[in-house]
Every structure is written in C-alpha cells, then in structure tokens.
C-alpha cells in the first residue's frame, strides 16, 4: 500500500512471568482507513494497541517489522517515543470515569496535550481546547472547560477524551473499547462524532472492540483475533461471507430482531485454532 501509516509483521508479545505469548505472529497494515480488531476478552486485542504506543512495561515485544510512518517503533528511544505519543499516535481509553484525572478540570486536561507538543501559551492552548470541545459537539465549551470529571456524564466524558486525543492532530488513533462503558443511547452519538472527525482529518483509526456489529458499521476492514492470533481478516461489508468457523460462531451468537426465539448458538472454541491452522 502506497500510503500505509502502519506496517506490522509477525508481532509477538509476552508478559513477564507468563508461560505463553499473549499475542502471536500478528501481521497487518493500515492506511488512512478504519480498521477494527475484534475478539473476546483475553484475545490480545488491547495488548496490540498498547504495544503500538509502547505502553507495556514488563512485556517483551518482538516483531519482524513494526513501522509507523517513518519510524521503527521497535528501536525508537523512549525520549523519541514521547514525541510520537499524543502528537502522532494516540489512544482513546475505555471508561472516562477512570481515564480522566479526578482532581483536574476537564479543560486543563485537554489543554495539556497541546501544551506538551506545541510551543504555546496558556491562552492559545485554551482557545484550541475550546475549539476542540466544540468540535466534539459539546454545546457549552466555556462551561464544560471548567468542570471536574465527576460533574460530567459518561458520554460527555468520552467526548472530552476524544477531544484530548485528537487535539494534537495525530495520524493514528487507537480506540480501545471507546463506547463499552457508555449507555447504549449515547454510544452511537459518540461514535458518530469520532467517525466524523477521523474522516475529516484523514486519521487512521484502529477500533478495538468485542462488538462485531459496531465494528462492521464503523470500520472498513476487520481483524478477528482469537487466543492471540489473527484468525481472519475481512472487509467489513463481506462480514457475512466470513469463512473461519470462529468468526461464523461470533456472528451466529448474536440475537436478531425478528429472528427466531430459540437458544442462540454457543461459541465453539477449538484448540487447533490457536495454532492458526485455517480450515
């Protein structure tokens, strides 16, 4: 791919003290597109995201290639990494209840991203912050700017999170279960905001989720992970044509409105899939 921003080949990750790799031989490339990574808990999807940001202390990361734009993430020094994080690659975390600092005003936390990466004074950072808060469709940015995290709702908290992570205009955003802590009613709203911003700014997005439906609606391509491996890669619109029995199992395990009322299919987990033998 001509404008690949991320090129991962044969990525393996093992946590210290673990007897098995958490992620094994994962390869994919990413352009200015939206890539979904789907899998159940413990499949290694979040671990991949954190490895890209090099935020896995106490884990051994190996790969044949781990290239992000012009830099090799494998041998970048921590000092250089500080200029990548937040500025060129960022991550939206799951639950704003925990991912925002409880004793700092929302605006100050957002502005910190800007102040960290650009030579700006407080007033400029504040103006940028207010602009960004408006961009995530917060109606009264001036007021929200001075609130504390416990004074805003989950949906608004997640919009603040998006503002914080897109403020420095990164090229890649990893969204780690960005809506699973939110009420169903505001999920779509938050996703639409994220989606709009990502498209407008031409940002590459990796959406990590366990929600197959959500990913197929908001992503161009989907990686299905099982036990640390990618078992299948699909275009989102070809989801129904999935071949791997695990993917088919995931699809079959979803209830449908107007579908039969019988018991849902139970996921089959065969040990041989762990070794990556595709049927």
């Amino acid at each position: 791919m001509q404008d690949a921003i991320l090129d991962v080949k044969n990525l393996s990750i093992r946590y210290n003290g673990a007897s098995e790799d958490a992620v094994r031989g994962v390869s994919f490339t990413l352009g200015r597109e939206r890539l979904g990574i789907v899998g159940e808990s413990g499949s290694g999807k979040s671990t991949v995201g954190r490895a890209l940001l090099r935020l896995l202390p106490g884990a051994r990361v190996t790969a044949d290639r781990l290239r992000f734009e012009d830099v090799d993430l494998l041998d970048l020094s921590e000092r250089e990494m500080l200029k990548v994080r937040g500025r060129r690659m960022s991550m939206i975390l799951q639950d704003p209840k925990f991912s925002l600092n409880p004793i700092q005003r929302v605006g100050a936390q957002v502005a910190e991203t800007y102040l960290r990466h650009f030579p700006a004074n407080k007033a400029e950072a504040r103006a940028k912050t207010l602009e960004m808060l408006a961009a995530v469709r917060i109606r009264d940015p001036e007021r929200v700017h001075d609130l504390y995290p416990h004074e805003i709702s989950g949906g608004m908290g997640q919009r603040v999170m998006i503002a914080m992570m897109l403020l420095a205009d990164p090229d890649l955003v990893i969204a780690d279960e960005p809506t699973s802590a939110l009420d169903v009613t505001v999920r779509l709203q938050v996703l639409n905001i994220l989606d709009g911003l990502v498209r407008d700014r031409g940002i590459g997005l990796i959406m990590i989720s366990h929600d197959l439906n959500l990913v197929r609606n908001f992503c161009d391509r989907v990686l299905i992970m099982y036990a640390g491996r990618v078992v299948e890669t699909l275009d989102a619109r070809d989801m129904d044509a999935a071949e791997h029995p695990y993917t088919r199992g995931l699809l079959a395990a979803q209830p449908r409105i107007g579908g039969t009322r019988g018991p849902l299919a139970v996921l089959d987990r065969r040990p041989e899939w762990k070794e990556g033998s595709t049927p």
């Binding site: 500080l82 200029k83 960022s90 925990f98 991912s99 991203t113 960290r116």
Partner: peptide, 20 residues
C-alpha cells in the same frame, strides 16, 4: 487508568507522577 491517559498524551513518566 488516568495515568495511562497521561502517558498516551506524551507525558514522561516523571511528569505523570508529579503532575497527575
């Protein structure tokens, strides 16, 4: 988690400790 957020923003370990 907010410590991870601060790291993702590009703060060094020391900055996340003293500021957050």
């Amino acid at each position: 988690e907010y410590m991870t957020t601060a790291r993702v923003k590009g703060l060094s370990k020391g900055q996340t400790i003293w500021r957050h």
